[in-house]
C-alpha cells in the first residue's frame, strides 16, 4: 500500500485480536468448564444412541410429540434410515445426532423423503406440514440429540436497531457462502452432478438450519465458527439484500450471473434487433 491505511486497518484488527486472544483468566476457565460440560453431555447422548439394545423398551420415555413423530417416521422414513434411525447401509445414513434442525431443513424443504436415490436430494413440495415436521424433529432429537434451531425463533437481525448487521452479514456471506452459492445467491454447480441450490426462495429458518447442520455436501457452520448473531447477520443479508432488494440496474437482473447471461443477451437481443433493423433498411420497399 502506498499510504498508511493498511496499518490503520491492522490497528483496527489488532484491537479485535487482542480482545479475542487474551480473554481474562476467569473467562477462559469459565469457557473451558462450559465446553467440558457440553462435551460430557454430547458423549452421554451419543452413548445412549449407540446402545439402543439397553433401552429397547424406552420408547415410552418419548414425549407425546415425539411419539407422533415416531409414527410418521415408521411410515415414511424407516425404509431408508432404518429402525430407530440407525441407518441402512447403501440406502440412508443414520440420523443419530443430526438433531431436529436437520429434520427441519430436510423435511421442511421437501428434500426428504427422497423419491429416488440420486446425487443430491432436490427441493420439492414438502410432504409433511409444519406440525408433522416438528413432530418428526422432536422424535429425532429425543432419539439422538444434536443441533437444534434456537427456541426464540429469531433468525434475522432488526436493521433498525442494528444497521451494521447488513454490511457485516455481507462480508461473512462473501467469505463463507459465495464460493458455492454465488455472489448473487443464484447457486452453482459442484462436482459430478451435485450443486449448491439457489437461495432466492430459502426462508430464514431454512438458512439457519442449513448453516447449523451442513446438509448433504454443505460444510457445517457450528455456533463456535459462526455465532448465532453472525448467522442472523448472514440471513439478514440474504433475505434483505439478495431476496427483497430489487436490482437497481434494470428490469431484468439476468440472474446476477454476469458474463454468461450477458453474452446470451447481447446476441439474443442486441444483435438480433440490429440485424432485423439492417434487413429492414436494405430491404426493397
Amino acid at each position: 500500500m502506498t499510504s498508511g491505511s493498511p496499518a490503520g486497518r491492522w490497528r483496527f484488527r489488532g484491537v479485535l485480536a487482542r480482545r479475542r486472544t487474551a480473554p481474562s483468566r476467569a473467562r477462559r476457565r469459565l469457557g473451558a468448564a462450559a465446553r467440558m460440560l457440553a462435551a460430557l453431555a454430547l458423549a452421554g447422548g451419543v452413548y445412549t444412541a449407540f446402545a439402543p439394545g439397553a433401552f429397547a423398551e424406552d420408547t415410552t420415555q418419548l414425549s407425546a410429540t415425539a411419539q407422533e413423530g415416531k409414527q410418521l417416521y415408521d411410515n415414511s422414513c424407516i425404509t431408508c434410515h432404518g429402525r430407530d434411525a440407525q441407518g441402512v447401509t447403501g440406502r440412508g445414513p443414520s440420523l443419530i445426532g443430526v438433531g431436529s434442525a436437520s429434520v427441519e431443513f430436510q423435511v421442511g424443504t421437501g428434500r426428504m423423503p427422497m423419491t429416488r436415490q440420486e446425487a443430491q436430494a432436490e427441493e420439492k413440495k414438502p410432504q409433511f406440514d409444519k406440525t408433522q415436521t416438528k413432530q418428526l424433529g422432536q422424535y429425532i432429537q429425543e432419539l439422538g440429540g444434536g443441533p437444534q434451531l434456537p427456541s426464540d425463533g429469531k433468525y434475522t437481525e432488526d436493521l433498525k436497531e442494528n444497521p451494521e448487521a447488513l454490511a457485516r452479514g455481507g462480508e461473512l456471506f462473501r467469505v463463507n457462502c459465495t464460493s458455492c452459492h454465488g455472489f448473487g445467491g443464484g447457486g452453482g454447480a459442484l462436482s459430478s452432478g451435485k450443486y449448491a441450490p439457489a437461495l432466492h426462495d430459502a426462508s430464514p429458518e431454512t438458512l439457519y438450519a442449513a448453516m447449523l447442520t451442513g446438509p448433504q455436501n454443505m460444510p457445517v457452520f457450528g455456533d463456535n465458527q459462526l455465532t448465532p448473531e453472525q448467522k442472523r447477520e448472514i440471513i439478514t443479508y440474504v433475505t434483505v439484500q439478495l431476496q427483497q432488494d430489487k436490482d437497481p440496474g434494470g428490469l431484468f437482473n439476468l440472474g446476477r450471473y454476469g458474463p454468461v447471461t450477458e453474452g446470451l443477451a447481447i446476441f439474443g437481443v442486441g444483435i438480433t434487433i440490429l440485424v432485423f433493423t439492417a434487413l429492414w433498411i436494405a430491404g426493397k420497399s
Binding site: 493498511p6 489488532g14 479485535l16 480482545r19 457445517v220 457452520f221
Partner: peptide
C-alpha cells in the same frame, strides 16, 4: 478479522478460511 482460532471453533464437517496472524 484477525482473531485466532481454537480447534473447537470449527465443527466436524466444517471448514473455515484462515489467514496468517501477522499484520495485514
Amino acid at each position: 478479522d484477525g482473531s485466532p482460532i481454537r480447534p473447537d471453533d470449527v465443527s466436524t464437517g466444517g471448514q473455515m478460511t484462515v489467514f496468517p496472524g501477522i499484520p495485514g
